[in-house]
Design a protein around this nucleic acid. Structure first.
Length: 408
DNA sequence: TCTGGGGTCCTAGGACCC
DNA sequence: TCTGGGGTCCTAGGACCC
């Protein structure tokens, strides 16, 4: 869109550090593989005068947003599935009404954003994705009206082109003489579930026109957030690795706050270059549970560096590292919990007897690991599991309640 | 010499609880 | 000699997606 002179010319886009090829224009698909290392493809690239670009994810995200905006103005229900895909739902519409509307959508997206899109129309998400494959290669729009349409589409579709069939399942299916999507669709339910779990069975139902994958209209908050990189140059010094890890933690915290989330678990991983067989290999990771769910940069950096210290070994040339935060809760819940805990502590201090207090603390729940530590300083005596959603929490410490009374 | 980054879901098995 | 039943949570590993 920004350089129309490139239209019809061979173009590739490279990954971080210009390491490998992550996007290709149609003109190069015949001789350059997806994911191929740049240095391997370089000869072909020079020979065919392929234009090469480093990637710019911010720009792609921005362009994606513009397309999604146009779509949501033209469609009753949408689900943004990925940076370049969106499911559109037309509840109650007839196939004949859909076709002209699809043309309108396609034309308007092109006109308003400059981005060409293809549209597959079908009764289920999986069939719509399959129809889209056809649309992309032909007119840009493909409609599946009835079960005959379904079968003739699936008959010509290799089974590994299906959404949900990757390398391993393809191998399994080929070994069982299943070549086309139609053959897969007609497999017995029991066989599919046994070998491909409930995911495989859902896929088969979707191909039979029974929708099993509902439209996710509202975007769910992320359950894990990761920042990781391969290094352009090897990293060996511990201080340098600390800097890297702290930066990744910083990035994770930014993403966390943007989502309005807080994390209660952090993981750090580091490894050497697995492609280099002459160098000694080392790879490790450490997961730590935070005492309190948090979105605070210094707090999370503190635990990330602690985890790093546990796994770092001197003498290796590290190639890649990353930070993952999980155990994610809404950050306003952390705030609310703080207030609740303060209230509870106040109430406890007003009580007269240990019995009364014990009765009261039985109802506690929240995100903090230690119910009254900011109200009354006492001795931690015994580790117990606080009665609440354990996956968010550390084991917590009970306080000795007669100490609380004395203190009060 | 040089090989990406960021996610999701499912299952089995173990620890632990009453 | 005989050794229950029902549940939750967590983790590792394996598959998939773009």
């Amino acid at each position: 869109m920004f350089n129309p002179a490139l239209e019809g010319k061979p173009v590739v886009v490279l990954s971080n550090n210009d390491g490998s090829i992550i996007a290709r224009s149609n003109e190069v698909k015949g001789f350059i593989q997806m994911g191929q290392p740049y240095f391997q493809a370089k000869k072909m690239i020079d020979e065919h005068k392929v234009k090469v670009f480093s990637s710019n994810y911010e720009l792609y995200g921005n362009m994606s947003g513009r397309v999604m905006n146009v779509l949501s103005g033209l469609v009753p229900e949408t689900e943004v599935y990925s940076i370049d895909e969106c499911f559109l739902n037309f509840p109650g519409w007839q196939p004949d009404e859909l076709l002209p509307h699809a043309h309108l959508i396609r034309d308007r997206v092109k006109k308003w954003t400059g981005i060409p899109v293809s549209i597959g129309l079908a009764p289920t998400k999986t069939l719509a994705k399959a129809a889209n494959k056809v649309a992309k290669k032909a007119e840009g729009i493909h409609l599946i009206r009835n079960s005959q349409d379904i079968d003739s589409l699936l008959e010509n579709l290799p089974v590994d082109d299906l959404w949900g069939i990757g390398r391993q399942y393809n191998k399994l299916l080929k070994a069982n003489n299943i070549q086309t999507a139609l053959q897969f669709k007609n497999l017995p339910d029991g066989w599919i579930q046994k070998h491909m779990t409930i995911m495989g069975l859902r896929l088969a139902y979707e191909l039979r026109g029974i929708s099993c994958l509902p439209l996710e209209k509202v975007q769910q908050t992320k359950k894990a957030i990761c920042t990781s990189r391969s290094f352009g140059q090897y990293v060996s010094a511990y201080t340098e690795m600390e800097e890297v890890a702290a930066n990744f933690a910083f990035k994770c915290c930014e993403k966390l706050r943007k989502e309005g989330s807080a994390a209660s678990v952090v993981t750090v991983f580091i490894h050497t270059n697995s492609f280099n067989t002459t160098l000694p290999q080392y790879s490790n990771s450490r997961t730590l549970r935070l005492p309190v769910a948090s979105d605070s940069t210094p707090e999370i950096i503190h635990y990330v560096l602690k985890a790093l210290k546990a796994i770092y070994r001197p003498g290796y040339a590290y190639k890649k590292a990353g930070v993952i935060v999980t155990g994610i809760v809404p950050s306003n819940a952390v705030q609310q919990d703080l207030f609740d805990q303060v209230d509870r502590a106040k109430q406890l201090l007003l009580m007269k007897t240990v019995d009364e207090i014990n009765k009261k603390i039985g109802t506690g729940k929240g995100i903090f690991n230690s119910p009254v530590k900011f109200a009354v300083q006492t001795h931690a005596t015994k580790q117990v599991n606080w009665p609440m959603q354990r996956k968010y929490l550390s084991p917590c410490y009970t306080t000795r309640w007669d100490d609380v009374l004395k203190a009060s």
